[in-house]
Write a protein that binds this DNA or RNA. Sequence first.
DNA 1: TCATATATACTCACTGAGTGAGTATATATG
DNA 2: CATATATACTCACTCAGTGAGTATATATGA
Lengths: 184, 184
Amino acid sequence: MTESKHSGNISPEFALLGFLISGQSHGYDLHQRFVTELGHVWHLSQSQAYAILKRLESRGDISAHLVEQEKLPARQMLRITTQGRKRFFEWLELGLGTNARSIRLEFLTRLFFAQLHRPESISQIYNSQSDEIESSIVKLETLIEHLPPEQTFNRLSLDLRLQQLRLIQNWMAEIRTQFHISRI
Amino acid sequence: MTESKHSGNISPEFALLGFLISGQSHGYDLHQRFVTELGHVWHLSQSQAYAILKRLESRGDISAHLVEQEKLPARQMLRITTQGRKRFFEWLELGLGTNARSIRLEFLTRLFFAQLHRPESISQIYNSQSDEIESSIVKLETLIEHLPPEQTFNRLSLDLRLQQLRLIQNWMAEIRTQFHISRI
DNA sequence: TCATATATACTCACTGAGTGAGTATATATG
DNA sequence: CATATATACTCACTCAGTGAGTATATATGA
């Protein structure tokens, strides 16, 4: 317990990769697309976008090629590599997340790119996320049951988390109808 | 938009300060207390606790004194300074937070320490937090209203945030009765 | 009795998240 | 003609966070 484990928050990275699946592009444009399409899901500053792209390049998930322009400064044209493509689809179909924040951020991001690049696996993504929530609700419930009664603040915290997870279930049910996702 | 602006997440710092209000202590003990009392509200690793304490010292919010022990390694005994005390109570009574996460984390932490050190200002803290939520619900509602309809994912994200804020309102109403907090 | 686990008490090196400002140029707008 | 805005990045910096390591003492079980 609890979140902020420095592990989450990987998906702006994958979002940038996801945009590159549609074809090569450059930092400025990727950041722009990110802001207009997912700007209310995540916040991503320009410099941060560039930093992430640098990291992706150093890991071999994308490759960069300088393209001179007559007037404006040269562009770093970016292409996703085979490895990057593999990593992206692994994240898309296997990545999960349990807490409210990561669901809003990661799950929505995955849904967004699934719709773009893998519409046929939307229901699989949806269902595994939904199962994950189910099971973490159960875990939380037992955790709360076994919490010593004097732990007022820990209890309040876990109570809210539990209620948030239940809320997310309803919110996801709403998504299911909107996206015409079939049950398991 | 959206959170994770690198600004939030200041309260483990204040929590450590808060424990020092009750009297001097040392890193190991402070971390232990944190984990047992607020371990389900926040996660705070040991090394992180020490890092924060270092920062607090460099800012002059706490002072350290080496205390030799016959057998175990020496302790850094930590005391809160006048400045630290001032900073702590400012945070306690003025600090706010709008998103689900920061409310669960920061608000609960403030409530915890208010109960310990300032029970008379609990209702003020509660009410200003509650007002803050009210006003950000209004903001979110208008934001959603003015969102172009094709922005499916941004809308879904904001919808969930709105519902989460409403959930928090109910959760806080529950706290009000538990803590016998009077209305404004 | 001897190994092993656990508690005490911290340090260190490292990666990553994130910001804010700066650089340089082109085009549109009042 | 000045100013704002869009294009396209870079840089220096701070804070967050982890995981492993160091060193010692005591309890616990085979």
